[in-house]
Write a protein that binds this DNA or RNA. Sequence first.
DNA 1: GTGAAAGCGCTAACAC
DNA 2: GTGTTAGCGCTTTCAC
Lengths: 344, 344
Amino acid sequence: MAMKALSGSKAATIYQVAQRAGVSIATVSRALRGSDLVTEQTRTRVQEAARELRFTPNRSGRSLAEGRHAANGIVFPDLVGPYYAEVILGYEETAAGYGSSVLILATHGRADAAAKVEELAGRVDGLAVMGRTVDDAVVERIAAIGLPLVLLARDPVDGVDTIRTRNERTAEALAGHLLTHGHRSFVFLGDPAGAPDVAGRHAGLAAALAAGGLDAPVVVPCGLDLESGRKAARKLLKQPPDAIVGANDEVALGVQLAAEQAGVDIPGDVAVTGWDDLMAARFAGLTTVVQPMRQLGATAARWLHERIAEREQDNQPVAARRRILPTRLVVRRSCGEHTPEESR
Amino acid sequence: MAMKALSGSKAATIYQVAQRAGVSIATVSRALRGSDLVTEQTRTRVQEAARELRFTPNRSGRSLAEGRHAANGIVFPDLVGPYYAEVILGYEETAAGYGSSVLILATHGRADAAAKVEELAGRVDGLAVMGRTVDDAVVERIAAIGLPLVLLARDPVDGVDTIRTRNERTAEALAGHLLTHGHRSFVFLGDPAGAPDVAGRHAGLAAALAAGGLDAPVVVPCGLDLESGRKAARKLLKQPPDAIVGANDEVALGVQLAAEQAGVDIPGDVAVTGWDDLMAARFAGLTTVVQPMRQLGATAARWLHERIAEREQDNQPVAARRRILPTRLVVRRSCGEHTPEESR
DNA sequence: GTGAAAGCGCTAACAC
DNA sequence: GTGTTAGCGCTTTCAC
């Protein structure tokens, strides 16, 4: 009963288990995967041998034989910020529920992003691609090899499923609210050309101002992080507009930091709004927009699962789906004074 | 030159590329992997064929042949909250730099966590395990099969690398600071038995109070999220102690929410502190502790890389490493009034 | 320089 | 019920 001498050794294979249990590898496979083609007695013996040898099936062997990876991937521009964490959470939770592992890839705006994504495509059964990580050509190339794909917070590509959150219309609602405060001059802080979401938010703001007969918002391009927002705001606050509409919460919070430092009062001297409803926004009193980020990730995982099943069963693929998830304005004190019954 | 008819088809294999290029699969492999055993002319022809067929090597085949996955895993209790996002970021970035993909697994406190983790172990070359996700038995089992492993923010296990952040000593410093404010009665909001980090923070606080000749802090067990903190605080604030030391920022922020709702002034009526320095803490004026979370993840990835290399080269393994990363107290207004030159 | 062929660990026909 | 065996797609000797 030489039951030790295992530590440090390489992982056991199915052959070793078979030998130890005195059966064939086929029987081991069957016994361990719950096939009803084995006696309970055999199964017990196999399980015991597997346990003794600390056997875990090598996933590569399995994947190769099964023709699937049992893994999904998700690609981000980067992982900084709480926004993506929520999306990942929803994605992972749902994918795990379907028995799929999750591979993450942050492109960090790197030049080799396309190569990384295509490599990732070779190790998953389905892929979620967020925002501006890779261009349409890459998406099309991956779609062309038949890998199930879903785009998140990104402009649609023909024949590929897309899930977005509502930007334009909620931005209009946000603008409408700012107008009721009497704000008339607007700066949009963010780069509409940099991300589809940002473009939508800017478009909604511009549309609402136009409808109100006002000048178009001044666009000040800006990165999507706190520090970029703060830097951009430093100049801006020397001659502040009535309202600064940040492309996301981090940018808006950056503005708040700059304002505090410069002694500019919010909302007295300038109104500020964001987008995302990060936890920090709540504590900063920032008027912003909530998005169902978790649901975004979860829906992506579910759609991928369906596409993968569809493929495996050689079903006729359903047409590319589009979904726009609802968003909701959250009014706090950064956009202007509210009467008591109005606030919260 | 039938160059299309590819869309929708399954991914191309090395055999198809070989056929198209009129060479053997061995040559394709060599050409594509940059071996210098092929003519430039052959290489060009192969590359062309590969491009036309949109060939990406199947990762399972490759992994099986190479005996490695080119992937690392990371296991979390869950993904809620910005804390983990930062650790993942550091981990992913570093692992990607070493050419490894990253698989994430959130255990969500599920009962089948152990099984999930062991399954994950079968598809990676190395694994980072955070906090209280699985118990020592599982860790030991995985370590026993020789899979490189590193524990993060978790009590050490014999023979396994561990990286933690400093808890005790910084907690003492925090307590010391609270004492200078004149606070004398303390509640620790969190469950020391629930997570190693929490235990350390509690221990540091208790030690400092004991050294100051004060009563031990009252421990009120509490989940680590905002809502748990808020709920626990609702009762607590009816008869507030001088100071509430939250096990992490989310808990402390929950206390702030409850205080605001109950009309309790912070820091006037009660001081509150957290741990982690989330973005929200900054805007909430919460006194807390910064930890190098990104570095935690990055170090884990680097150590794993080293262990994997060590294994591949059959080097003698170096002894299990322990590292404690520094943390730093960040004093804001929630812990008590400060003189101007003292604050910020 | 290139090809043939032997695996890598596993699953799933197919025999018995 | 169980064993035998043929792949899954790739890398890597070993011949030539």
